[in-house]
Design a protein around this nucleic acid. Structure first.
Lengths: 188, 188
DNA sequence: CAGACTTTACCGTCCGGACAGACGGGTATT
DNA sequence: AATACCCGTCTGTCCGGACGGTAAAGTCTG
């Protein structure tokens, strides 16, 4: 495994296990099995580490969401349904993303700029290219992000069963309205 | 204004304006117009400051939510509707709470324990004492928290108009079903 | 040899917290 | 009323340690 990747993995492990405040260069380097100098060869600063973290994890999330959306057979709302399905249970990629965002917010808010741009792209896609009513598209994203961020902070996260029911409710709302609009369209 | 309150206010200002990483004892003390020793008289440690922050702000949020719920004329879902109304636009109390939670998560995850308990109480109330279908109650909370946490990180926050539409959609969903259930009940 | 990679040693700064007292408004004692 | 005392509040200073980052030397490989 490449040293650079080992460092990134070590960083997320440190955050998950010891918290954001323990994300220090020494600790990450030690856990990655590299000296601090070695660490700094790959990431010139702590900010660079966090940017690298966000880039990697957001990239994974983006491709996985697209794969999921491609696999969904729906005339409308494929991306929205993928978004909802993705938070069905907390996946590793989603958790890694969450802790990375938390770390970025803790260190320097500006580090989140490119992450914000990605979310904006998702939002635009949901709103314009997914064939959904705009409000329903936004609802899907808010519910998805809500569950995901509730998990991040552990704020009374729902059980797997409750989670599934809520997601089904929203999914049905989206697809039912889509189907209703289909009928109306074809009746014209 | 009491010194203790000035310190709490100074702390939230520091986080909002300079970020979580700038939340140091010296900075908070300076902004509150008190010496470091004076600060430490009121809050024996940084952890104590954050606990004080969370206690105050969660208390405000809790009472304001209750006041709002009491003022809502609905047979079912008053608390859920209050929850949704509260995130209509980002209020000061909501923002303060968000940044406090962020600070706590950044410093030490355990500091959120009592906050988690409060969210659990809200969740229980929504689920059992609000007269709603459990899934719809959970939906209200997830949407509310979703919008609120999206604001916290600035992850492509919706416009005021979009926000209102989503909240209306969820509110109607809740109250319509409540009304439908009323009819079914009275027809028995 | 060259260049990518890694190590060791080191530095300046900042931070959380400890501490020893100063100030000042009560309150009890005489 | 004057004195002495106490205690809640607050000040300024100091310290040890951790942290982010630098610099230079070394190693391994093509």
């Amino acid at each position: 495994m490449l040293t650079r990747d080992r460092i990134l993995q070590a960083a997320t492990e440190v955050i998950k296990q010891e918290g954001v405040s323990s994300l220090t260069l020494d600790k990450v380097a030690a856990r990655a099995g590299v000296s601090k100098g070695g660490f700094l060869y790959h990431f010139g600063s702590k900010d660079a580490l966090i940017i690298g973290l966000l880039n990697q994890v957001m990239g994974v999330l983006d491709t996985e969401l697209n794969v999921l959306a491609d696999g969904i057979d729906a005339r409308q709302g494929a991306f929205a349904l993928a978004y909802l399905e993705y938070v069905q249970e907390p996946t590793k990629a989603a958790t890694d993303t969450a802790v990375s965002i938390l770390a970025a917010a803790a260190v320097d808010d500006d580090l989140l700029d490119s992450t914000r741009a990605t979310f904006q792209r998702w939002q635009d896609r949901l709103r314009h290219d997914d064939g959904l009513d705009e409000t329903e598209a936004l609802l899907a994203r808010v519910v998805g992000d809500g569950l995901w961020l509730i998990d991040l902070f552990g704020l009374a996260p729902p059980t797997a069963d409750e989670r599934r029911k809520v997601l089904d409710l929203v999914s049905n709302l989206i697809t039912d309205h889509g189907a209703a609009r289909d009928l109306a369209d074809s009746a014209e």
